[in-house]
């Protein structure tokens, strides 16, 4: 395990062992194991890798068919434990839905009620805090249907921050955000990750490189690699080379801004090797998996 610093006497806040989940004939998760303490853990993988299923299990809304789950030291298959976990959990789904007639404030307030905050002044204070943290104080009175897609994602993020959760599950939070919003998001999540556990799924390698202390690369329901972002990049060491043209031996190649071609695959002898990035490692990992399945 490439453990995160949990700052809690070595006690992991998320522990999954051999998780399996099947939907009819589709095996969504196949023996997934991972551990996480305080910090940000990124789930990286293509569509259909099983990230959302895994996050739903972490959010306690889906039960695995097999395997062991421990969240915040509790077992979510037990009703009482599940309730305690949910009291310390924030969850932003991949496709957050909204009651579009609500204002941003009313919507977050609605979720605050679902989070057992019934005392109105204290609840409203917490709603304002979550909206402010997400940079939404100026639009809190606007109807959700009048907000842009990026703003709506921030509203979804705001509801997940209610109650200052110890475990934050974010499913594709940067999808649909413009570059400025994405930077703001990174800044905010990075600060939040200083004293809690955040599990974030993405297929944006830049997000993982910028935010996460630990990354889990998934494909077809399996964990391909667990480690630091640099470990993902290291997978591609010796497999990335620059050439004046597209090399036929490369599995993937593209023309860079400098006019040369960056080739990824089995480098030929004497090739001009390049420093690998997390993106190179990810492409190689996921690409190899796809290649072996096709064979």
């Amino acid at each position: 395990m490439t453990g995160l610093d949990d700052g809690n006497g070595g006690k992991q806040r998320v522990r999954l062992q051999g998780i399996e989940k099947r939907f009819l004939r589709t095996r969504a998760l196949d023996g997934v194991s991972l551990d996480a303490g305080t910090g940000i853990l990124g789930l990286l993988g293509p569509n259909g890798a099983g990230k959302t299923t895994l996050l739903r299990i972490l959010a306690t809304i889906l039960a695995p068919d097999a395997g062991e789950v421990r969240l915040l030291g509790r077992n979510p298959s037990r009703s009482r434990d599940r309730l305690e976990i949910r009291r310390r959990l924030g969850y932003m789904p991949q496709e957050p839905g909204f009651h579009r007639n609500f204002t941003a404030f009313e919507f977050v307030d609605y979720v605050a009620i679902l989070k057992e905050m019934t005392h109105r002044p204290r609840r409203h204070q917490e709603v304002r805090r979550a909206l402010e943290l997400s940079g939404l104080e100026s639009v809190s009175g606007k109807k959700i249907r009048a907000l842009s897609g990026g703003m709506r994602r921030r509203v979804a993020l705001a509801q997940s921050l209610l109650g200052d959760p110890d475990l934050l599950i974010l499913d594709e939070p940067t999808a649909g955000l413009d570059p400025e919003q994405r930077l703001r998001f990174r800044d905010m999540v990075s600060r939040l990750g200083e004293d809690r556990t955040i599990v974030v799924s993405t297929h944006q390698t830049e997000d993982v490189a910028a935010l996460c202390q630990q990354v889990v690369v998934m494909n077809a329901g399996r964990v391909l690699l667990t480690g630091a972002p640099r470990d993902v990049a290291e997978v591609a060491r010796g497999h990335v080379w620059l050439a004046d043209g597209r090399d036929p031996r490369a599995r993937l190649a593209w023309r860079t801004a400098e006019g040369r071609h960056r080739n990824i695959g089995d480098a030929p002898p004497g090739a001009e090797l390049a420093e690998p990035t997390i993106e190179d490692g990810y492409l190689l990992l996921v690409g190899e998996r796809a290649f072996s399945e096709a064979a």
Partner: peptide
């Protein structure tokens, strides 16, 4: 039918009560 169904499930308020 409920756009916030998933968020509601992950919240401590019992879905049965809602």
């Amino acid at each position: 039918v409920d756009p916030t169904y998933e968020v509601g499930l992950a919240a401590p308020m019992r879905s049965f009560r809602l």
